[in-house]
Amino acid sequence: MTPTANISTLNRLDPGDCGTILALDAGEELYQRLVALGLRIGNSVRMLRRARFGGPLHIRVGTTELMLRVREARCIRIAHDTATDPSV
């Protein structure tokens, strides 16, 4: 499981894929909220599913599951872990 230098944003992850948070390009308010919910730099996130019709994303970070809109997910820069996790 070696993360490549495949840099993207969270909204681009496919369901089942994981990424490591590199940066949060968010205003102070959103930044605070993301951090409080566990979306910190260095943490690993997994995309669980996306709602239909461009709806929100369902992700997991640590033991917390979150939903967020694509607009918010665009603010989260990640390194895409290419290796698929055996637990999926």
């Binding site: 308010e29 959103l30 909220r33 993301l34 919910l37 929100p56 369902h58 917390t64 599951e65 979150l66 939903m67 967020l68 809109r69 607009r71 918010e72």
Partner: peptide, 10 residues
């Protein structure tokens, strides 16, 4: 005004 990031509790 709130960021749309909600918890999905188990």
């Amino acid at each position: 005004t709130d960021p749309f990031v909600l918890e999905m509790p188990p």
